[in-house]
């Protein structure tokens, strides 16, 4: 049984069609990468899966059950969300932020218990930022904040985590830190991750770590292609997706494993030519 199943799903704002007849499914322990240019509807698609919006047509199942009418609490016990941008307002402490991940498991008027707070500390430990536990989270760097958001998603104890461009705005080191954390979580806990990203190389990265990786090239409201990164990502598909010339090279790391890497070279001025 797939954790997330979407068949022929469509969505439009008022009269503006955002996407139509999208289909994909996500299995346990799989990373599903959504790749596409700005404004192609990636975030809207994720919003529909998270229940912020509702698909206008098509089939949408979570854990094999029709999820169209799921209440927020029920969705939140199946899917956790790491936002693209988190707007910080009040200087909550890091551990208070992470504890909020337990909300879906609490009753309506219930507050987190000692057990929930312990889980938050454990998640911080797991992600490697326990030392930040008592910091006001408004003082964290962008990379640290992203780790806190992942820790919060982790204590939500969901089989699926949705990440919207988790490495946007991060430096090289934190990009790798986040990628490694995701890799470890998927491997040791069998989590599934649905991830929108602007970096197609991420798909190759996960694949090189022996994680079952799928990729969907999303443009103009439909999937140009979907499947294994190796078979889908080539010079032609990048040309069609982004309107660029790109080279794909192969790297060999210290362990002798090869990893493909895309190098964007130039834009194509006249796509029709």
């Amino acid at each position: 049984m797939s954790l997330v199943t979407i068949r022929d799903a469509s969505f439009s704002y008022e009269t503006k069609q955002i996407f139509s007849r999208i289909s994909f499914s996500v299995e346990k322990g799989e990373i599903f990468c959504l790749i596409g240019p700005n404004g192609c509807g990636k975030t809207t698609l994720l919003d529909c899966v998270l229940g912020f919006h509702h698909f206008h047509s098509g089939k949408f199942q979570l854990m094999g059950k029709d999820a169209a009418g799921f209440r927020p609490g029920r969705v939140a016990r199946l899917i956790a969300y790491v936002p693209q941008i988190h707007e910080r307002t009040f200087p909550y402490l890091v551990r208070e932020i992470v504890t909020m991940g337990r909300s879906a498991h609490l009753g309506f008027f219930e507050s987190p218990s000692r057990k929930d707070r312990t889980m938050a500390e454990e998640a911080l430990e797991r992600i490697g930022i326990r030392h930040l536990s008592s910091c006001p989270y408004t003082q964290l760097s962008g990379g640290e904040l992203q780790l806190v958001m992942i820790a919060r998603a982790l204590v939500q104890e969901t089989p699926v985590i949705i990440m919207d461009e988790p490495t946007a705005h991060l430096d090289f080191r934190y990009e790798l830190v986040i990628m490694e954390v995701i890799t470890e979580l998927v491997k040791e806990r069998g989590l599934s991750v649905i991830m929108a990203t602007h970096f197609p190389n991420h798909a190759f990265y996960f694949q090189s770590k022996q994680i079952q990786t799928s990729i969907a090239l999303f443009n103009n409201g439909r999937f140009l292609a979907a499947g294994e990164p190796e078979s889908i990502m080539d010079e032609n598909s990048l040309r069609e997706l982004y309107g660029i010339h790109a080279d794909i090279i192969s790297l060999t790391d210290a362990d002798g494993k090869t990893m493909k890497h895309i190098i964007p070279v130039s834009t194509i001025k006249d796509m029709d030519a």
């Binding site: 927020p72 909020m100 909300s103 939500q156």
Partner: peptide, 24 residues
């Protein structure tokens, strides 16, 4: 007083609060 924990979560903004399981 009864709902004060949810006020914490609501202060994360509507999207995140809903994703955390709150009927915003």
């Amino acid at each position: 007083l009864a709902i004060r924990w949810q006020i914490n979560v609501l202060s994360m903004g509507d999207r995140e609060a809903q994703a955390l399981g709150i009927h915003t």
